[in-house]
C-alpha cells in the first residue's frame, strides 16, 4: 500500500462562498500500480493530485503516503517528502527556462544535498534513460515539446521516487509526441514505478491499468482497465 486516502475533504474559501473541491474521497493505491484519474474540469482531480503530491494539505481526512501520515507536517517536511517520494510531471513541463536540460534534471538532487560530481552522473544517466543524453547542454527553448517533457520525466525520476505524479503530461503535445511520452510511462511502470496520471483524454487513460473517475469532488467510478 503506497497511498491510502481516508475521508478526504478539501474546502476552498472563495470570498464568502465555500467550495467543496473534494468530498469524502477514499482511495488506496498499491505499489507498481498505473492509475489514471479522470474527470471534467472542476471535478477535483487537480486538487486531489496536489494533495497526493504534498503540495497542498486536506481540510480534513487522512492521507498516508508510504506508511507516513502526511497530516500536520510542516512546509519543510512536506518539501522533503516531495523531494524524496514524489516525481512531478506537469502539463506545461515547468522546467527552469535559463537552466540547461542537465541542470534541470539535477535540481532535485541539489535540494537533498547530493555532492556535485555524483549529481552530474545521476542526472546524465536519467537523461540517457529518456534518450536525451545528446541534449544535456540545451536549454528548454532549444528543445521540442516532447523533448522538454522527457527532460521533466528525467527530473521526476532522478531521486528514485515512490510515486510519479503526472498532470496532463500529454496535454501540450501533439498526438504522436504524446504517444511517445506515454510509451515512456508504460515502460517505467513495467520497470516497477508507481504512476498516477491525471488526464481527461480517454485514449491516454486506456493505456493505464486502473481508471478512477471523479465528479464534483467524489469518486464515481474506480475500475481496473481491461
Amino acid at each position: 500500500m503506497l497511498i491510502h486516502v481516508e475521508n478526504l475533504i478539501k474546502i476552498y474559501q472563495l470570498g464568502k462562498v465555500q467550495v467543496k473541491a473534494l468530498d469524502n474521497i477514499n482511495l488506496t493505491i498499491d505499489r507498481n500500480e498505473y492509475v489514471a484519474v479522470m474527470g471534467p474540469s472542476g471535478s477535483g482531480k487537480s486538487t486531489l493530485m496536489n494533495i497526493i503530491g504534498c503540495l497542498d494539505v486536506p481540510t480534513s481526512g487522512r492521507y498516508i503516503l508510504n506508511d507516513q501520515d502526511v497530516h500536520n507536517l510542516t512546509d519543510d517536511e512536506l518539501a522533503h517528502i516531495r523531494n524524496k517520494e514524489i516525481g512531478f510531471v506537469f502539463q506545461t513541463f515547468n522546467l527552469l527556462p535559463r537552466a540547461t536540460a542537465l541542470h534541470n534534471v539535477e535540481l532535485p538532487l541539489i535540494y537533498n544535498g547530493t555532492p556535485r560530481s555524483k549529481r552530474r552522473e545521476i542526472a546524465m544517466n536519467m537523461l540517457e534513460r529518456v534518450g536525451l543524453a545528446d541534449r544535456a547542454n540545451h536549454r528548454p527553448n532549444e528543445l521540442s515539446g516532447g523533448q522538454r517533457q522527457r527532460v521533466a520525466i528525467a527530473r521526476a525520476l532522478v531521486n528514485n521516487p515512490s510515486l510519479i505524479l503526472a498532470d496532463e503530461p500529454t496535454g501540450n503535445l501533439d498526438s504522436k509526441t504524446g504517444e511517445e511520452i506515454m510509451q515512456i510511462f508504460n515502460e517505467l511502470n513495467e520497470a516497477g514505478n508507481t504512476i498516477l496520471l491525471v488526464t481527461h483524454e480517454e485514449d491516454i487513460a486506456r493505456q493505464t491499468k486502473r481508471i478512477i473517475r471523479l465528479l464534483d469532488g467524489q469518486v464515481i467510478k474506480d475500475e481496473m482497465n481491461q
Partner: peptide, 13 residues
C-alpha cells in the same frame, strides 16, 4: 519558485 518548491526546495532554500 513554484517549480523549485514542487521538487523539494524548503523555505530556507
Amino acid at each position: 519558485i513554484g517549480i523549485r518548491k514542487a521538487i523539494g526546495a524548503t523555505r530556507k532554500n
